[in-house]
């Protein structure tokens, strides 16, 4: 009941932000000087098509009217047609979504697998070798640009002895093994920066928890140190780590632009890039609106999960 109320309230506060994002995406196309219809048609321009488009989109109407009509189409899932290929933007997005989802999802899991053990280790060995290692990974992960890391990985593992593919994509429906071989390097390259942020968060949260009284109490009761760290400590450290997950999702979506470019993966990020290169602003508008909507929804979910877990965590 309380959760349902929270959900509605959060949804209510997200909605104006989403509207703002839609205005931003809509405005993007109008900020570029030149005739909108010409721009939207790109290479497919004919006088006849332009006339039909102006008619359909109401381009002779005032901007607010155009916006409302555009929004009406967006809400029904119609994001317009690519100026370059003439295909619906929605289809372009859906076609490329699985690649980016696999990349970002894989990177998130990899990041957690690196961050949590190292973060706990760092806190447990405060000031000793393990902590030092964790801090080095943390600070270098924040400092190495992901596209350079990708380049280094190609140098080391595709041109070097590893023999992994240096780019390209193979759908898992064709060959799962090939798919994984192709995704391994980009996933690692994208994950390191996220791992660094999560690791630092996890380490400091663990340090704070280790200082607290109930840990002393548990130790006095004879709970083993390992159990103490990994069960009691981590259970509590997980919450602050979760708070940054939503923001990291945004980093993953943005970072995928760069990584998909390095490894020539046909995902949403490279779609955005090719949209800019071919001046396909309808497509770019669609990508931005889509990514921002996804980001808002992810953050909404994280917030709700947090609210759902938090009271139980405190009670235990």
């Amino acid at each position: 009941m309380v959760l349902a109320f929270m959900f509605l309230r959060r949804l209510f506060s997200v909605f104006p932000v989403w509207l703002g994002v839609s205005v931003l995406s809509f405005g993007l196309l109008r900020l570029i000087p030149g005739d909108t219809a010409t721009m939207m048609l790109g290479t497919r321009y004919t006088e006849e098509r332009a006339e039909r488009l102006r008619e359909r989109m109401g381009l002779d109407q005032p901007l607010p009217v155009q916006y409302v009509r555009w929004l009406g189409r967006v809400v029904r899932g119609d994001l317009g047609e690519s100026a370059y290929t003439g295909r619906p933007v929605r289809d372009e997005l859906l076609e490329r979504l699985p690649v980016t989802l696999q990349l970002a999802g894989g990177a998130l899991i990899t990041a957690l697998l690196i961050a949590i053990p190292l973060g706990v280790l760092g806190a447990a060995q405060r000031g000793k070798a393990g902590d030092y290692a964790a801090q080095v990974v943390g600070i270098s992960g924040l400092s190495i640009p992901n596209f350079w890391l990708g380049t280094l990985l190609i140098l080391g593992f595709s041109l070097g002895p590893g023999g992994l593919p240096s780019g390209g994509y193979i759908s898992p429906s064709v060959s799962l093994a090939q798919n994984l071989r192709h995704m391994l390097l980009p996933t690692v390259a994208l994950s390191l920066a996220v791992a660094a942020v999560l690791l630092r968060m996890c380490r400091s949260a663990m340090l704070e928890i280790l200082d607290q009284d109930f840990m002393e109490l548990a130790r006095a009761k004879g709970v083993s140190r390992t159990r103490l760290l990994w069960v009691h400590g981590l259970k509590n450290a997980w919450l602050p780590v979760m708070t940054v997950l939503g923001i990291q999702a945004g980093y993953l979506l943005g970072g995928s632009v760069v990584i998909e470019s390095v490894f020539r993966l046909p995902g949403i990020g490279s779609l955005a890039l090719s949209a800019i290169q071919s001046r396909d602003y309808v497509l770019l508008q669609g990508v931005i609106l889509f990514v921002a909507t996804a980001f808002l929804l992810i953050n909404l979910t994280v917030d709700l999960l947090y609210a759902w877990i938090d009271p139980r965590m405190r009670a235990s």
Partner: peptide, 10 residues
């Protein structure tokens, strides 16, 4: 709500 790289690109 627009990821930083994406916003800069736009």
């Amino acid at each position: 709500s627009v990821p930083d790289v994406m916003l800069a690109l736009a």
